[in-house]
């Protein structure tokens, strides 16, 4: 008697997980890469690198605008900031920000264009770069209001070490 060979059968024992695993892997790789190289960094923009000392004002790249100079000195593990023409000293960037906000509001009330206000940061040679950038950040954070709009300082630059 001729025996019939067993038929080849294919079992689908459950849902096919392969596409799901593939997609999950793609998402995982994407997130890993994005997490490592994502935009956690940004930039503080300046249109003037540094104002040099001993160079006549007419030859400076900083125009003759309203000038607001912040003197920054080092004091151990912290900094001391002072606005030129103001006796008060600041060790916290937030206090400096509040003072600058008041100053900016004063200029706006006098209808002075913020583009005409030059903020100069004048650090001492031994002040840490971290502190100087904190001051820069405080300047950018300072704001006033004009015609219902929030206004910030637009021109910030450094001065050669005092």
């Amino acid at each position: 008697m001729k025996m019939k060979g067993a038929k080849q059968v294919h079992y689908d024992a459950g849902p096919n997980m392969t596409p799901l695993v593939d997609v999950v892997m793609v998402i995982l790789i994407f997130l890993m890469l994005a997490g490592n190289f994502g935009d956690v960094e940004h930039y503080l923009a300046s249109s003037v690198p540094i104002r040099e000392k001993g160079v006549p004002v007419k030859d400076q790249v900083i125009p003759d605008d309203v000038e607001l100079k912040i003197r920054v000195d080092s004091s151990g593990d912290r900094f001391i900031a002072r606005l030129e023409g103001d006796e008060r000293t600041f060790v916290d960037p937030k206090d400096l920000r509040d003072l600058l906000s008041g100053k900016l509001q004063g200029y706006l009330d006098k209808a002075i264009n913020p583009d005409k206000i030059q903020v100069l940061i004048s650090p001492g040679g031994f002040v840490k770069y971290n502190y100087i950038i904190q001051i820069y950040d405080a300047v950018l954070e300072a704001s006033g209001t004009s015609a219902g709009k929030e206004i910030h300082f637009t021109k910030v630059a450094f001065e050669q070490a005092h």
């Binding site: 960094e41 503080l44 690198p49 540094i50 770069y129 050669q160």
Partner: peptide, 30 residues
């Protein structure tokens, strides 16, 4: 590096000034 003194950064900015480059961006972490 944020731990450096300003006097270490300053010569670089003075050179940028000398080269006539006006657009400077300070890279910081959010």
């Amino acid at each position: 590096d944020g731990e450096q003194n300003w006097r270490a950064i300053q010569p670089v900015l003075l050179t940028i000034n000398q080269a006539g480059v006006r657009n400077v961006f300070y890279n910081t972490e959010q």
